[in-house]
Design a protein around this nucleic acid. Sequence first.
RNA 1: GGAGACGUCGCAUAGUUCGGCCUAGUGCACCACCCUGCUAAGGUGGAGUACCCUUUAUUGGGUACCGUGGGUUCAAAUCCCACCGUCUCCGCCA
Length: 423
Amino acid sequence: MIDPQLLRENPDLVKASQEARRSSVELVDRALEADGVRRSAIADFERLRAEQNAFGKRVAQAPADEKKALIAEVQQLAASVKDAAQRSQDAEADFTTVVRGIQNIVLDGVPAGGEDDWELVREVGDIPTFDFEPLDHLALGEALGAIDMARGAKVSGARFSFLTGIGARLELAIMNMGLDRAIAAGFIPMITPTLVKPEIMSGTGFLGEHADEVYSLKDDDLYLTGTSEVALAGYHSDEILNLSDGPLRYVGWSTCYRREAGSYGKDTRGIIRVHQFTKLEMFSYVDPADAEAEHERLLAHQEGILQDLGLSYRVIDTAAGDLGSSAARKFDVEAWIPTQNAYRELTSTSNCTTYQARRLDIRSRTETGKTAPVATLNGTLGTTRWIVALLETHQQADGSVVVPEALRPYLGGLDVLVPTGSN
RNA sequence: GGAGACGUCGCAUAGUUCGGCCUAGUGCACCACCCUGCUAAGGUGGAGUACCCUUUAUUGGGUACCGUGGGUUCAAAUCCCACCGUCUCCGCCA
C-alpha cells in the first residue's frame, strides 16, 4: 500500500507513477475522494460514540428508579451510533480497496513504459561460441539422464518435469551453493511454507493484476506460493521489528508453483517455464533509507554467483509497466542461452520500499520512538532454470557438459557430466 | 476426525460466577528522577498500538483494540454464535 499521507499531500507524484506504469491514473482521484468520505465518517461516528459513552456512565450511576427513563432517552442515540459505525466501516473498507489498487511508487530513474522498455545496466562475460552445433538444454538433459519431460507430463500434465539422476543433483548443487554463499553473507536460512493464507498472499501484492498466475486451493482457502518471498514477507507480518543492529536478512528455500496462465505456446520445450520449480530467495527487511543500497547488495550477490558459474549475462533495469505491483524498481539478470540466441531471465531482484510492509503491517521503531513501515527487498539466488544456462553454456561437442569449478564441491568433485545412453 | 482445557496491555497473572465503580488490577522487566559514599535494596512518577479532530512545537482532546469475526444490550474482557490457534488424551495416516 502506498503512504496515505503521500497520497493526500502529493497526489501528482502518485499519478505520475501510475502513468509511468501505464496503470490507472484516475484511481488516484478516486482514492482521494474515498479518503475524504472515510475521514468524515470516522469523525461522525467518534463524536456520537463519545456522547454515548458519557451517557452510559450516567445510566450506571443513576438511581434505579431513574434508569428506565434514561435508557428510553438514549435509545435513539444508540441507533445513530450503530448507523454511524456501519457507515464508518464501509467508508474505511471502500478506501482500503481503492488505495490498495494503486501500485507502488516507482523510483526515480526507472524507465517508463512496458515490457520492452527496459534499460541495459551492463553486460558481463563474452557470449559463448561453439565450433559445433550446440544442443538445447532438453536434448542435453535427456542425453545426460537429467531431465524427463515425457514422464512429467504423464504424471502431472504439461509443464511438469522430473529431474532425474544428475539433474536432481545439479539442482541441489545450485541451491546449496547459493545457500552457502547467503549464509556467509549473513542471511538466515529458512525453509518456508508453500501454502499461505489469503491475507498473506494479498499482502505481498500477488493477488492484483496477476492473480490468475496463482494456484489456489478453494476447499481450504489457501494459496500455493510462486516464491518463498511470500512466506518470508508474511513471516514478520503484524510485528514491530528491531532494526537497530542492521537489516534482517533471510534466505528461503522452497518449491514454487505458478500457473503460467497466458503463456500458452511460449517456452513449451524443456524446463524454462514450468509449473513447479525450486528456488532460493534472499529477503531483506531494512530501514527505508537503506533500501537502495540493499538492492545493490542483493544484485551483487546474484552477479557474483552467476559469474562463478561461468555464465554470460546482462543486467536490466525493468520498465515501470513490467514491475510487480509491490516493486518500486526491479533488476533482472538474464543469462545468454546459446540455442535461443537470446538472454533469458535467471534472477530478479525487487525493491518494494515500504509498500509490502504497509500491507502486512511490518514496522520498526524510529529514533523518535515512533513506529514506521520498514522496506522489504527480495532477490533470487538460485533456481531450477539455471540448469538450462549451465548445460547449454558449458556443453562440449560430444554432448558432455563441463561443471564450473565453483560448483564441483557440490557434486562430489564431479568435473564433467557425460551422456548415459537412453532409458 | 472425536473428547476436554485454554487464549487478557513486553512476559507472567487477576478479572468472566451475577454485564455498568475495568478509561483492565498485581508482579517482573523497562525509562526518568529522588535517596543512601559506590553497588544492591527502597521511594516517586512514566510508559502500548492504530486511527480521527486540533495544534502543526515531540500541543491538547477523542475513538477503537482483552485470539478473530458476527450477535444481544442504553452499556460486553464478562452473555450468545461461528471461526482460528495452543495444550492434553483418543482415533486415523505417506
